[in-house]
Design a protein around this nucleic acid. Structure first.
Lengths: 261, 261
DNA sequence: CGTAGTGTTGAATTGAATCAAGTGTCGTGG
DNA sequence: CCACGACACTTGATTCAATTCAACACTACG
């Protein structure tokens, strides 16, 4: 698609973001890539490793064929085998509770690690599904443990990754327990912004890979509320929304919404 | 206190629970105890270790003098040094957000591990405070990592503990995002019940070590709502409450409340 | 014994859910 | 290439659960 195809939207004045220009371009679904050459190696497990260590890690990483939108990496109650790292695309994790209610427990972008909820019980607590065409590295956990035994750096880093997951979950805890719909949404958008920035995508302009229902189920809100909040934030000039396209127009003001007691 | 001193309560008919009969008796604040002789060693880190390994773990554990009610183990933004295990008593962790709001992020009973939120950032994300007179084992993390490098069982178990923390946090996530006040409270009480059972205390009859405000700040509810829910559950005959004393009268019905869509 | 902290209860308010009725968008098959 | 249908999203009206505000009772500790 050439730039001539880009037309501005009459309602919002936004220039459409194309997947080609963002996720897809940055994320080759190339199974032959190695950890050493992966563009995410400054985010992912190799970050703490030297070259020979990266090579050892590389040997245990399985690079399966890409997942199509809607494909599952694994399902709730499956036996825990591996953790997964997103190389390209995006993944959601969700839980079906006994009462049949669905809850989205997380979204995962390139460089982020999936499946740690199964480590303790040896059974995955979540199902995980590709939100779009996605390439994933699979790391069999037993082998990762064995390698961690040999590489102190890897052990240290994996402890850090898990600690990070714990700290992250506690932030969500706070978010859900005392923030308003608008604060949750602002926080969600700012979080995405940071994460997109980390993988060298625009932190102010991105495509939401998930539908509103998913965001709502993640933030503990209904679709209707999500829709109203997006509209309200747009009306206040803090964001521009056009379907899945989001532009953050006033990051400071978004931060202000969250800080407001 | 002799059994003659126990008088039934006129309102609830409950026989008062004394700290002496529960927490205190089971939890000697004895600093000279070793991991090998600790009654919690089937819950705590030693669970996966053989005798010689336990001895090595024992060598890195610091047993500080007991904490008094209100004492802090550490404060938010302190440099991360150690993880802590509750040997007796109970601890709460909480966060002060930028906007000055307080959130309780967890309660910790004997055998449970505190401080993993600091592993990634090397700074504690929470403050942690003793809810009552409590004995705590401190485990310097650098030494724990070094030992994990030598003892595969310890590494494996610590990965499991962190994985457990992650899975636990996700359950709270669900709790907060879609449960009613009554469901959250029922879930909270059943959770405590399980945890007290695990340390050989009554799963149906216990003293809440925390005040209502803390529970509310943990569950994302106000004190007033907490109070109303306790009253309502009591009126329905599911629990008996008398200040901090709780008796679960109908565990199945409490589970039913949570399951109700 | 008094005071600060904790807990309860009631009335009014409000933010988000629910119910309801649409419009918009995308992918598929004709 | 267009038409159709399914799904996604929006908007409005109403309801409801929990908060807020307010007053008061209990308890525990110095």
């Amino acid at each position: 698609m050439s730039s001539a195809d880009i037309t501005s939207n009459s309602q919002t004045g936004m220039i459409p973001l194309q997947a080609t220009a963002t996720n897809r371009e940055l994320c080759p679904h190339n199974a032959k890539i190695s950890c050493a050459s992966c563009r995410l190696n400054k985010l992912c497990l190799p970050i703490a490793l030297d070259n020979s260590e990266i090579h050892q890690l590389d040997n245990i990483v399985k690079r399966n064929r890409p997942y199509k939108k809607g494909d599952h990496l694994y399902r709730q109650d499956d036996a825990f085998e591996s953790v997964y790292v997103v190389r390209s695309g995006s993944i959601k994790s969700y839980i079906l509770s006994d009462s049949g209610k669905r809850r989205v427990t997380g979204f995962f972008l390139p460089g982020e690690i999936i499946g740690m909820d199964g480590i303790a019980s040896k059974i995955y607590a979540n199902s995980t599904m590709a939100l779009e065409h996605s390439s994933i590295c699979e790391i069999p956990f037993t082998q990762l443990e064995r390698l961690s035994q040999q590489l102190p750096n890897l052990q240290h880093h994996f402890f850090a990754i898990m600690g990070n997951e714990i700290a992250k979950d506690q932030k969500i805890h706070t978010l859900l327990s005392s923030y308003t719909a608008e604060q949750r949404t602002a926080s969600f958008l700012l979080g995405l912004s940071t994460r997109y920035g980390r993988i060298s995508l625009s932190p102010t302009r991105f495509l939401l890979p998930m539908i509103r229902i998913d965001i709502g189920e993640y933030l503990g809100l209904t679709v209707e509320t999500m829709s109203r909040v997006f509209t309200a934030l747009q009306r206040k000039g803090l964001i521009a929304v056009n379907n899945r396209e989001i532009e953050l127009l006033d990051i400071e003001a978004l931060r202000g919404i969250i800080a407001a007691s």
